[in-house]
Design a protein around this nucleic acid. Structure first.
Lengths: 252, 252
DNA sequence: TTTATAAAGTGACGAAACGTCACTGACGAT
DNA sequence: ATCGTCAGTGACGTTTCGTCACTTTATAAA
């Protein structure tokens, strides 16, 4: 008569992860556009009903992938944050960690972008949406920390009419725009001939930081060579993986 | 034995437009995520087969909507280009014409963003893709023209390691990032509390232009009040429409 | 050990949407 | 009048989604 408690909290998490990974593999192999629940179910030792116990629908699953992606990015951001260097250098490094992520995990990057659309948000579970918000906040912590450092040592002063949050967002949206438009995921962006993403990201970052008056200004410092060193120091494995992919970061 | 020529070239174009408009209405009413070919067919006095004669699939139709959207934006850009004012003012105005467009035609803005994904590009017709490229090039002409003007009167100098194309792209991707992340279409972007799109677009533009050294620098000029005047001059009808929507551009 | 009970798991099924294709009918040439 | 061609049609096969009636499993009570 006593209701039996059969569910293992830990096992549940593990199973959810399994489904999640299956989905990510499918996206990597065949593209987000070819992801179907039937394929996910086929790739996993559980039935459709069980999969739907974890994810209320395809969109919910996609948002879960997106959340996982943000966690991965979050780690990269934190490592950029920890770099020993001046604040402007560190922010530049953070922007490039975003690029590394977009190159290394295109399927995750794509999932995050897609999951921002109303068609996904509208069908995801409340819980997953909350998780998403929390993760995005976590993401901002590293950015915020670097800006704080800049303000602290007076290499950066808040521009008129802007607070810290706005400054952080300016950097974020700038990187987002450049990487979204130039990373391979978005095909056919005309006027994009001869534009190399790493070079433009460097340019845009420098323009923005100079506009903020973030010292040392790009006229004073060889930000390019410094960046190369910082990247090799903080993200050696990731750079190696990128080269393995036949790609190479190239500013000149 | 002689093959009869029954198709009226003009009528074809007209019919295609009709289908296109039906699709746009459906998107406006029910969102892009609820657009189906069956609904389009039902809203139009032609059969499914005929609709599929014009658009080889749902994605092709979506790209057609996107192309139409770019034409609309193209017109706004050109009007900003024509404004009598200093080059920096005009570029700021152009960025805001982009915002006006995003506010006034959210369904078109959404369609353009979505149509950039591989899932759409991959299934659209070759012809439609070419058209897309051409339209995007057309879009860039106004931007290019304003930059040229700035270079011409020495209010702007090319930053080291950047050419005109790169400069144009910097402006474009900056606006794209800010508007995409802050316009209502992308829900739930955490760290977005208290961020008002028109204020941030102004901030980002000023930071970027200052970073380029585009005179007059924002410390010298009251760009805010000047922008308000320019907007009222060039886009009075659009601003009225925005107010009709219960929205109001507000920088403070 | 057996039985009762509720949670967990299953996969067949109906609904919805996509895109195709065999057919119809209209029009011009002969 | 007849034939050939092509635009137009919509029923149909296919895919995918998400549900739900049913089976299995695990534990507590008898």
């Amino acid at each position: 008569m006593t209701p039996p408690k059969l569910l293992d909290e830990n096992g549940l998490k593990e199973r959810e992860k399994k489904i999640l990974m299956a989905a990510i593999h499918l996206i990597r192999e065949a593209g987000l556009e070819n992801l179907t629940m039937d394929k996910v179910v086929a790739k996993v030792p559980f039935s459709k009903g069980t999969v739907y116990k974890h994810f209320i629908g395809k969109e919910d699953l996609l948002l879960a992938v997106s959340n996982h992606a943000i966690e991965v990015l979050s780690d990269l951001f934190y490592r950029a944050y920890e770099f020993k260097g001046c604040s402007r250098e560190r922010m530049l490094l953070l922007n490039f960690s975003y690029l590394i992520y977009a190159i290394l995990y295109p399927e995750l990057f794509q999932a995050v972008i897609c999951s921002k659309s109303q068609s996904v948000i509208g069908k995801a579970s409340e819980q997953r949406l909350n998780e998403h918000d929390q993760l995005e906040t976590k993401l901002l912590i590293s950015i915020h920390g670097i800006v704080d450092a800049g303000l602290g040592d007076n290499s950066l002063t808040l521009p008129t009419n802007m607070n810290i949050q706005q400054l952080c967002f300016a950097n974020w949206s700038m990187s987002y725009g450049a990487i979204t438009l130039l990373s391979g995921e978005v095909e056919s962006c005309s006027g994009r001939t001869d534009l190399i993403i790493e070079r433009e990201l460097l340019n845009h970052s420098n323009l923005l930081f100079d506009g903020m008056g973030w010292k040392p200004l790009s006229t004073e410092a060889k930000s390019c060579t410094k960046l190369t060193v910082a990247l090799q120091t903080v993200f050696p494995d990731e750079l190696a993986l990128i080269e393995k992919k036949g790609r190479q970061l190239n500013f000149n």
